[in-house]
Amino acid sequence: MAVELTRPALAAEASALPARALLVTLLRPPVILYVPAALFLAAFFLVPLGLVVWMSVSDPEFGFGNYATFFASRYDLAVLARTFQTAFVVTLASLVFAYPIAYVAARRGGAVGGFLLGVVALSFWTSFLVRTYAWMVILGAKGPVVGLLTALGVSPPPRLLFTTFAATFAMAHMLVPFMVLALYAVMKRIDESYMRAAASLGARPLRAFLTVYFPQSLPGVVNGATLVFITCLGFYVTPTLIGSPQDKMIAGRIGQEIEQLLDFGAASATSMILLAAALALFTLYDRFFGLDRMWR
């Protein structure tokens, strides 16, 4: 009852005193609750992004020169293409690794599920840098993998470190936990009765999985893939430290432009192009595979 009385009262005030009414509206709970978040986003996201945009069109001189240079450079375009290609492969690989883990954890539960999630969480909490160094040791010239290959008579043993393969593999490994958690969150909500219903209707386990379980886990696949793909696009440490110097990814290129060439304008433009390309890709993706629409 109290609410119904206050609202007309506020409306009356609004027509009488516009300025004060505006203030009242702004200070009313729903609006005021946005303020901290809005301030935070403005200070730490909008302003820096605006600065990057500004730098990309004003350094060294005003105009779109930095962008023109990027699109005229075969090298830069190749780096951009390779970045997306690598991110795609990494996403696919981490999906292949993560799906069975998440599936078993979600459906088995109990000790097995807890153990799997524990291992995933442990690796999730270990920093990218530490895990990158771990891969350097594992794949290094004196590491266990090369040692094993030598012992098996592969000679000369292949060089593993500083290759595109090493970077891709390590990135996939690092992103598997994200994928597992995204998949697990969705799979945990797929009730056991769906698989039972499928079985009672005559579906063998594989058929039931393909026709009933997998389609229902797709939202998790999309969430996980988005997360991994975006994270991978911006990966800097791993490809720089253990990837092939010839196969630079775009974050590495931006780093090079800033640290070695001191070309802040070009670096800003490259960043903006990466952002725009990612947004464009996801807009297209959402248009054609709007998976949230799948079962509505």
Binding site: D191, S193, Y194, R196, A197, A198, S200, T211, V212, P215, Q216, M294, W295
Partner: peptide, 11 residues
Amino acid sequence: MVFQNYALFPH
């Protein structure tokens, strides 16, 4: 079999 939560395949 008819389940309490129906278990209709949502997709």
